[in-house]
Amino acid sequence: MSKVVEVAAAVMLRADGTEFLLAQRPEGKVYAGYWEFPGGKVEPGESVRAALIRELQEELGITATACSPWLTRQFTYPHATVRLNFWRVTAWDGEIGITAPLEHSAVDWQKTGEPATVTPILPANDPILKALSLPTTMAITNTEAEGSERQLERLEDALKAGLRLIQVRAKGLPPAQRQRFAEAVCRLARSHGALVVINDDEEIARQVGADGVHLSSISLANCLQRPDFTWVGASCHSAAEIARAGELGFDYALLSPVLATPSHPDAAGLGWPEFARQLAGNTLPVLALGGMKPEMLSEAQEHGAHGIALMRGW
């Protein structure tokens, strides 16, 4: 088996998250002319963070001041097998290419969630581009607590305020009523360009034209192949379950409970240190669930999360 080369890859994001940077490989390098995320090989004895900071200084002439682990992907090229450690970089000192020469033919800012406008892109990065388009805040419906009508009112307000990802969870409703509620959520979401996934019901997801399905941890354990939807996610409670979702080619996972929740105040959550440990080496975006509040998004991302999921407070 060939040696795996560790690589630090920088997902550089504008402050509002609407754009990310791609760089073009220069002449003389393997895959010259292809576009990729900036970064490079992790040297012996060097941490991924240190390699990331060094590479950005060498390649772009900037110093990263805010960066956090995001996800890891392994890919085999004809010339090497690489493990790409993708880190989000959200703040830096300096201007790209001003204080040091670029080690790329060009760089280009791309719109998050839109098809890339540069080609060709290194094949290892295709799943990363999709992961970047996943919104960082998920609202999970809670009809049992508020009722369908109130939930729809709140969802409309949240969508107007920028919410772009909804999981329809309405297990307490009769099937016909659950479908009507899902249809109403999809109509609202479409008018705002938001994604909708249906909790644990592929049939309703297809009937209402949802963007995807979200499996419970029990359904994940019994799943043999990825459901045929654009977006597929799963509820997970351990690193092993996250790994299983990744093996099946799912697009994201929720990891819970991070903190104590109102519904289970006496149940101890993972806590942020353990949450980060469970995420180490994850291959897909993971959202933190359990006791989350909107203002915790940055803290969650600092511990390796893609974002947060909320059943209350969205």
Rank of each mutant, 00 (worst) to 15 (best):
L155Y: 04
L13W: 15
V7G: 01
E58D: 14
L165S: 05
A170E: 15
W70A: 08
L159H: 05
S298M: 10
N222K: 12
G39R: 10
G269R: 13
T230C: 00
T136M: 02
I218A: 14
R169C: 14
G246W: 11
L188G: 12
R154W: 04
T117E: 10
T261R: 10
T261H: 14
E156N: 13
L22A: 06
P26T: 12
A189I: 07
L132K: 03
Y252G: 02
M311L: 15
E27S: 09
G209P: 11
H303R: 11
I128Y: 00
I62K: 01
A100E: 09
E302P: 00
E299N: 07
L102H: 05
W272P: 10
A184E: 14
G45S: 14
K111C: 04
K41S: 08
A124G: 00
G97L: 13
D251Q: 07
E114N: 04
A64P: 14
G313T: 08
K293Y: 11
N199F: 11
L13I: 10
P123K: 06
E36L: 10
Q57F: 13
G249D: 10
E6V: 05
H264G: 04
D157A: 12
L254N: 01
S298H: 15
T90D: 12
R54F: 11
L102C: 01
S133L: 00
Q207F: 01
A170H: 13
G147A: 07
A280Y: 06
V48C: 01
A50C: 08
E95W: 05
L248I: 07
S47F: 09
A221K: 11
